[in-house]
C-alpha cells in the first residue's frame, strides 16, 4: 500500500489549450491520474482525444506558443516538473522520463548512424566518454534484439520494426523511471507488433520502469497494461484496473468502443457503432462533451458537466448516470 500513497507519477487537474487563429483548442481538460512504480497505464482514445497532448504535457514538451498549460500539476516523485527551469527540463527528459514516438521512420535522424544516436543520450545524461557510450550503445542494440555489428548502419538500412527497436533502445538507454510510448506499434505489421510489444513488456519488467502506453487499440492494452484510462474530448471518461473497465464497463462511450470492434470469436451480423463523430475541440458541446452521441442521454447532460465518480476502489467514471 505504500506505493499507492507515493505514486511515481501523479497528474493533477491538468488542462492544456492551444491558442490558435481559429480559436481556442481545448485539447486536454482537467485530467488526473496516478501511476505507481513498475505499473503500466494504457491511455486509449480516438484521433483528437488529447492523448498525445497529455503525453507532451508530462514530458514538458508542449509547444508554446500555441500550446499553453492552463492549470494543473505533474508530480514525479513529488516534484512538479512543470516548475522546472529550461535546463533542468533537459536533464529530466531522457533521464527520468523518455518517450517512444509513433512513427519510427521520422523519429530517427537519417544522417546519423543508429549507434551514434543511442550513444548521444548516454553521453548527455550519464556523462559517459565517447568510447564508453559506444560500448553502451552496442549493449543496448543487443538488448533490443539487433546484432551489435549493425551499430554503424544508418536508419534507412533497417526495416520499420527494426527502427522501432532502435527507438526503444534510445528511450531506455539511461534507464528512465517513466516511459511514455505513443502508439509504438501502430505503424507496424501485426507479427512485428507482437514482437515489439513483447520486447517492451520484457524490458520494463526487467528494469521496473513505469509506462504510459498511448494507443487507439483496445486489444493492445490487454497485452501489456495493468490499468487503463479512456479519453474522450480531452477528458478521462473512465479509468480503472483492466478487469474493471473491460468486464464491468460503465461509461456509454467505452461501451460504444467495445461495440464497434468486430469480434474474432463471436459472429455478429451488425456492429453497434457510436453515432456521429468526434466533436470539434474548438467548440466542445456544453455539459457532457459526449452527450450529442450518447445513447443514454438525459436532459441534464446538456447543461451539467459530470464529475469524476468513484464506483468501486480505483474505478472512476465521468458520467451523470452514475452520480
Amino acid at each position: 500500500m505504500n506505493d499507492k500513497n507515493n505514486p511515481l507519477l501523479s497528474v493533477r487537474n491538468l488542462t492544456i489549450h492551444y491558442i490558435t487563429d481559429d480559436g481556442l483548442v481545448k485539447a486536454v481538460n482537467d485530467i488526473s491520474f496516478d501511476l505507481e512504480k513498475g505499473k503500466t497505464l494504457g491511455l486509449v482514445g480516438e484521433t483528437g482525444a488529447g492523448k498525445t497532448t497529455a503525453a507532451f504535457g508530462i514530458m514538458n514538451l508542449v509547444p508554446d506558443p500555441p500550446g499553453k498549460i492552463i492549470s494543473g500539476e505533474i508530480l514525479i516523485n513529488g516534484k512538479d516538473i512543470l516548475k522546472l527551469k529550461k535546463n533542468e527540463s533537459k536533464k529530466y527528459r531522457g533521464k527520468v522520463a523518455s518517450m517512444i514516438l509513433q512513427d519510427p521512420m521520422t523519429a530517427l535522424n537519417p544522417i546519423i548512424t543508429v549507434g551514434e544516436q543511442i550513444a548521444e543520450v548516454c553521453r548527455l545524461h550519464d556523462k559517459l566518454s565517447k568510447a564508453d557510450a559506444y560500448i553502451k550503445a552496442a549493449q543496448m542494440l543487443e538488448l533490443v534484439g539487433i546484432p551489435s555489428d549493425r551499430i554503424d548502419e544508418y536508419p534507412h538500412q533497417f526495416s520499420g520494426g527494426m527502427k522501432q527497436r532502435v527507438v526503444i533502445a534510445i528511450a531506455l538507454a539511461c534507464n528512465p523511471q517513466l516511459l511514455i510510448a505513443d502508439e509504438p506499434t501502430t505503424a507496424l505489421d501485426v507479427t512485428i507488433q507482437a514482437q515489439v510489444l513483447s520486447l517492451i513488456g520484457d524490458l520494463i519488467k526487467k528494469y521496473e520502469t513505469s509506462m504510459i502506453l498511448i494507443t487507439h487499440d483496445l486489444g493492445v492494452v490487454t497485452e501489456i497494461c495493468d490499468k487503463v484510462a479512456i479519453m474522450y474530448a480531452g477528458q478521462i471518461v473512465e479509468t480503472g484496473d483492466l478487469e474493471a473497465v473491460y468486464e464491468h464497463t460503465k461509461h456509454p462511450y467505452t461501451k460504444g468502443l467495445f461495440g464497434s470492434l468486430p469480434s474474432l470469436s463471436a459472429k455478429a451480423h451488425r456492429l453497434n457503432p457510436i453515432y456521429g463523430s468526434m466533436p470539434d475541440p474548438t467548440n466542445l458541446p456544453n455539459g457532457c462533451a459526449f452527450h450529442p452521441r450518447c445513447p443514454n442521454k438525459m436532459p441534464a447532460c446538456e447543461n451539467r458537466a459530470p464529475t469524476n465518480t468513484e464506483l468501486e476502489s480505483g474505478h472512476f467514471v465521468r458520467c451523470l448516470l452514475y452520480e
Binding site: S159, G161, M162, D189, V190, T191, I192, Q193, A194, Q195, L197, S198, D217, L218, G219, V220, V221, T222, E223, L242, E243, Y246, E247, F258, L261, L264, S265
Partner: peptide, 25 residues
Amino acid sequence: KALLSVIPEAAIKKKKQKKLIQGEI
C-alpha cells in the same frame, strides 16, 4: 496460425498461447 495468435483481442478472459514468429518478411 501465427497471424491469428498475435492479434491483440479486446478481452481479458482468455489469454491465447502466442506463437511469436521470429524475423521479418
